Amino acid sequence: MEEQKENRPQAAPKEAPAPPAPAACPPGRQHCRISDQETNGKNSTASSNDFSDPIYKEIAITNGCINRMTRDELRSKLAEFKLETRGVKDVLKKRLKNYYKKQKLMQKEPINGDSYYDYICVVDFEATCEEGNPPEFIHEIIEFPIVLLNTHTLEIEDTFQQYVKPEINPKLSNFCINLTGITQDIVDKADTFPQVLQNVIEWMRQRELGTKYSYSMLTDGSWDMSKFLNIQCRISRIKYPSFAKKWINIRKSYGNFYKVPRNQTKLTIMLEKLGMNYDGRPHSGLDDSKNIARIAIRMLQDGCELRVNERMHAGQLMTVSSSVPLEGAPAPQMPRYRN
């Protein structure tokens, strides 16, 4: 539902490859090559966040070398490590830095791969809308998609999609039909939101999310949960579901990880900067969710630990600090009806 959002005010794979060869600048660039002998044989007792450890000096020197590489040099080095070579120069630099840092830190102290979410559930609702989105217009969810991303295989493992019958404005505007591709006939035949939510919860339970496997929700921005789902639960007279009270806002994660401003975190721009094209039909909830999942996969490959950064509390949107311990969402349960 990117267009509606924009018009409003507002882990890597478990099996690590062999440690990389030291990053090196091309001939003629001085003090760029790092020898493994610089840190071999030094038994440091420093903790992983103690930057007096010699390994961090080595990482810092390598980062400086990477900063001086051209795009072609970056792509060559990434190809050498069998890493993705698509993307703008800043993305390539970040990818190479994180790969090198991760490999060096794993030599020092192996990372516990069991500490991250097993799955990420990507959601991107489609909702009723009118051209210009008048402030008094009440948006109702008309498509509920989920893309299940396996963080161990870094693949989309499964998908869920159901359309929803709106109650307050049952007749879709021509603008909404043209934008989303969802026709009047589709929503007329669909279940109401409480039944669709029950189906969602059953689908998640069958995949043992929150019981056998840890997971987190992920959205493209704040609006899906804080606005669309929040409003829809009030319309349907049900409590806000507990499994959706915390989520990863990938726009925030992308901006913080690649150090780009908010105006460069739209779905299409994120894909472009990562060297990818949009697959499918824009403003299809399921296709949007799949493309968001592709961005999440690339970020995990680049060394980003996607983690919960937003939550709902007492009906209000709040930020979650990155220092909060990583915790998966609870097992999904159907919320109670409001009195």
Score class of each variant (00 low, 15 high):
290 K>L: 09
29 R>L: 09
294 R>G: 02
331 A>V: 08
78 L>W: 06
121 C>N: 02
119 Y>P: 05
45 T>R: 13
262 R>V: 09
322 S>A: 15
164 V>T: 11
126 E>P: 02
111 I>F: 12
34 I>E: 08
233 C>T: 14
195 Q>R: 14
264 Q>S: 00
120 I>F: 14
315 G>D: 01
133 N>K: 08
71 R>M: 11
212 K>F: 05
148 L>T: 05
193 F>L: 12
149 L>C: 08
319 T>V: 08
171 K>N: 13
182 I>E: 04
286 L>Y: 01
61 I>A: 05
15 E>H: 12
137 F>K: 12
199 N>V: 00
262 R>M: 07
232 Q>Y: 10
206 Q>W: 00
172 L>Q: 03
64 G>I: 08
95 R>N: 03
235 I>A: 03
40 N>H: 10
167 E>I: 12
19 P>D: 09
325 P>A: 15
147 V>A: 04
76 S>W: 11
179 L>S: 10
244 A>Y: 03
262 R>C: 05
119 Y>G: 04
277 N>K: 12
250 I>C: 02
259 K>S: 13
313 H>F: 12
20 P>D: 10
44 S>Q: 12
270 M>T: 06
258 Y>H: 10
45 T>N: 14
241 P>E: 11
61 I>V: 05
48 S>G: 05
235 I>P: 02
41 G>V: 10
10 Q>H: 15
92 L>T: 06
55 I>A: 14
49 N>H: 09
127 A>E: 10
282 P>C: 14
53 D>F: 06
86 R>P: 00
35 S>M: 05
319 T>E: 10
78 L>V: 09
288 D>P: 02
243 F>Y: 07
167 E>A: 11
245 K>S: 14
51 F>D: 13
320 V>D: 04
114 D>R: 11
128 T>E: 05
26 P>E: 14
292 I>W: 00
253 S>R: 04
48 S>F: 07
169 N>M: 04
146 I>S: 00
315 G>H: 04
171 K>C: 06
47 S>P: 07
112 N>D: 15
138 I>P: 08
107 Q>H: 05
305 E>R: 09
10 Q>S: 15
228 F>Q: 10
147 V>D: 00
226 S>M: 07
12 A>N: 09
52 S>I: 12
311 R>D: 01
13 P>C: 11
99 Y>H: 15
223 W>I: 04
67 N>Q: 13
142 I>C: 02
195 Q>P: 01
293 A>H: 01
